[in-house]
Design a protein around this nucleic acid. Structure first.
Lengths: 228, 228
DNA sequence: TCGGGTGCTGTTGTGCACATCATAAGCGAA
DNA sequence: TTCGCTTATGATGTGCACAACAGCACCCGA
């Protein structure tokens, strides 16, 4: 039977909706501070508020949403200090991913990395539409996380990335001065990681990733200083 | 007005119930595999199923519960491999807690550690009632997590502890041979950490904690080998 | 005796109506 | 005019009835 016509279970539907909403938050379709309407979302996905609220509750426990009785459900923002703490933790965990249960990439995953490298080279920076750039980086992060077989570490890594992604993209697109440079830096990171993977050096790939997280965070802080 | 009589908001009520249920899972009041009844829990807490289900959804996203349509809601178990991965991650994070935003303990927190040390010394091992021992260790973990000001790291550390706690306690109380020894080992850990804290060496405290997690995991694996 | 179909029972999942709450507009008196 | 109260509105939170589903006992026919 065709997969598409297979009826999705309640759990699968909820999981899919959660992914969609998380994606929209991370690529700034729903920017920090934006109010989401339970009624509108329920209508969009063709369900009632009850199962939708279950999804929102999960996103709230992931610190991506925040509901206030009688007011609304809002996309969360991050204070500078929290952002700083998360980034320093992400840097440590990225290094850790090379040491804890590293797995060589399958040929399919290698192909995926090559596609990512191509996409990065081909992408034209457009200050008006952050989505393509944000989505590209997100796909890269998800691919990178497949290099580590330690599932809890992978989950935590992604969880922390989801929290910082929108803030980083936002800082990049509000000043929008360094967009082209940031894109070329990212393209080089993908190329470097790909080279390390083809050489079979997983720890090197992790170190490169770690370094780029660290450097991109420094550049973001520099933007924050000059912008403020 | 008195704090106790202050009406709890919906959010606070839910948070409180979540803590209670998580506590019951971690100290084996609800052992792995046990079925929980939404209706009974709702009645116990004097609310309807709707808000209770919100709490259960959050515990499910923390991998402590698992609901199956038409069957029931069950306390999750952990396969050996998952347990292994979580423990190795916990060991790394425990070390990290000494390096990332360490904070000297307040006098109140030091007092709390001394109380914990006293409780550990005074506790009589009883193979029939794991609760006192499990609760003591949980309180120690929560106190220890206050030595690190990096909130995301603290959250992750606690989250991972909640997942392993019940399995560790269960392995200890099913064989129940090493209970007295394990208790004395724990008492020494608390004493060692307390000594390090009184000397002002936070990194040493973290290292001691890390070592004890590692060793207690080895002892658990040894029990698993001999028991099977 | 055995196999399979069928209904029963109890569970989680969903939809809907209403309660509760926060906000802002409206309005009247000082 | 301006301050403060009232009211209207729209949001999330809750309770309840029912739908969907899985498992089990039961029963009937071969």
């Amino acid at each position: 039977m065709a997969q598409d016509s297979a009826p999705l279970s309640a759990r699968d539907r909820a999981e899919r909706i959660e992914e969609i909403l998380r994606d929209r938050i991370c690529v700034l379709d729903y920017p920090p501070g934006m109010r989401l309407s339970e009624a509108e979302l329920a209508e969009e996905f063709g369900i009632s508020r009850t199962p939708l609220r279950r999804v929102l509750a999960r996103l709230e426990s992931a610190h991506l949403l925040h509901s206030v009785h009688g007011v609304g459900t809002f996309v969360t923002d991050l204070a500078d200090e929290e952002l700083d703490q998360i980034y320093r933790l992400r840097i440590e965990l990225a290094q850790l991913a090379g040491r804890l249960d590293p797995v060589p990439p399958s040929t399919a995953l290698l192909t995926q990395f090559r596609d990512l490298a191509d996409r990065a080279m081909a992408l034209q920076p457009d200050p008006e539409t952050p989505r393509p750039f944000a989505q590209l980086i997100m796909d890269f992060i998800l691919a990178q996380s497949q290099l580590c077989a330690n599932k809890p570490l992978m989950e935590v890594t992604q969880h922390l990335y989801f929290q910082t992604a929108r803030i980083w993209v936002q800082s990049l697109f509000t000043s929008s001065l360094d967009l082209a440079e940031e894109l070329s830096v990212f393209a080089r990171e993908v190329a470097d990681v790909l080279a390390a993977l083809e050489a079979g050096d997983l720890d090197a790939a992790a170190s490169i990733h770690r370094t780029h997280i660290s450097l991109s965070y420094r550049r973001m802080r520099a933007r924050r200083e000059t912008g403020a």
